[in-house]
Design a protein around this nucleic acid. Sequence first.
RNA 1: UCCUCAGUAGCUCAGUUGGUUAGAGCACCUGACUGUUAAUCAGGGGGUCGUAGGUUCAAGUCCUACCUGGGGAGCCA
Length: 481
Amino acid sequence: MEAITKRSKIKDLLTTEKVGTRVNIKGWVRTFRSNRFIALNDGSCLQNMQAVVDFEKMEEALLKRITTGACLSVTGMLTKSMGKGQDVEIMVESIHIYGNSDPEKYPLQPKKHSLEFLREIAHLRPRTNTFGAVLRIRHAVSYGIHKFFNDKGFYYLHTPIITGSDAEGAGEMFRVTMLDPVHPPVDEKGHADFSKDFFGKETNLTVSGQLEAELAALALSDVYTFGPTFRAENSNTARHLAEFWMIEPEMAFYDLNDNMDLAEEFVKYIISYTIENCREDLEYLTKRAEDEDKSKPQHQRSEMNLIDRLGFITANPFERLTYTAAIDILKNSKPNKKGKFQFPVNEWGMDLQSEHERFLVEKHFKKPVILYNYPISIKAFYMRLNDDDKTVAAMDVLFPGIGEIIGGSQREERYDVLKMRIRELGIDEKDLWWYLDTRRFGTAPHSGFGLGFERMVQFITGMGNIRDVIPFPRTPGNAAF
RNA sequence: UCCUCAGUAGCUCAGUUGGUUAGAGCACCUGACUGUUAAUCAGGGGGUCGUAGGUUCAAGUCCUACCUGGGGAGCCA
């Protein structure tokens, strides 16, 4: 009897010289061809390991149980492959089956499935090439983000997920309550009495960690958050989730320009990091997207493939222009003059529609665009008022295909101006006393932005729907798994 | 939430102006073959045509409502 062979990951067997040694791998069967060739995948990388069985020497009952989806432990000699399509393979000496998989009922077949179908079996879709690649990239992007900030001396700040403040103004919130849903305690007006609730007040899930991040930035200088975020908007699009992850750096002593510099450097770093560390998965997704493109009409196809597109982003400076300059370009643009825009651009102060942003990014500049200095009327209370009294020091980074990937601003650090803005927008300043306190005690110029994590992963993987870059998407009417 | 398109076998889809017993490929099962790469060849099983109403001699096909999904829009990250 041989000594027990330690399990290897398939990725390690492919990258280290182990030919001629006895190895053990464990994983899930992708296909079993010719009663002889098992394609086994353990998720460590895109590639399968081919395990070759001598079916004349194997028990037939065991062979019958090697079906798509079954989980196996395979031991044998790692050898140069005799066939084409793989460099090495395992000549099987023994097989242990951890888990059967009834081929009649297992929904994944060794063929292409639609993303819509896979979404319905989100518990099994990580076993596909596409989702394996997306999830590995999602990890790398996540790790790259922490590395970027850590290397720059930023501190990772954990902001609360349950929040008692509803002043963020970033949209509808999910209520968190322990009150009896049928017969809650009521106040004299007959409304639910949240003073009797778990926290003694009405609480919600966070829509942003920004305000808390600002508190920490005015002590630690440079911080960032990276956590779940919840929006109860009834948004049904390919780029919205009810639960998503957001990164929010906040920096003391950064003005708007420093903020834009950081945002651009950050995004480019993340993309470069992924290109360097996820080559194989990116190549797979690139090929996948190219195949998909072939079935589309010419004018809908992308000009550049996925990997080239990513490389292009890292190699070229983003276009920076003010809101005012953007309005000028849009006003004089062909689609505007020909009345092709659903929302014509005619006056300064209007909010830009996604068709306008898409025109600037995809047609006019053909690269990422940073718009800044927006009219005060269309932006949030905490953004710093510019000297013209008409605009605020806000900035949005717009990406091809997905639109706004980053939104940020220099924050209003002047106590009186901030208080005035809070009043103007009808927010109860009592809810924000702690926020205003930072402006009373040692205030400082500071800036920050928010990056939608899934939108970043969407751009890097080229996936068209945001529901396919998060393991278990939450959207209106869907909280399965 | 609004506009729009779609829902037929486990999956991907075809199904004529409403007209006999609703089809194909893949998957699955049986057999053959065995260095395969979405293996191949022969045979077989598999359907309340999204749900509920309605029109009609007759509905997968037409009408209404609802459900689910796609694309677009709004809100945003």
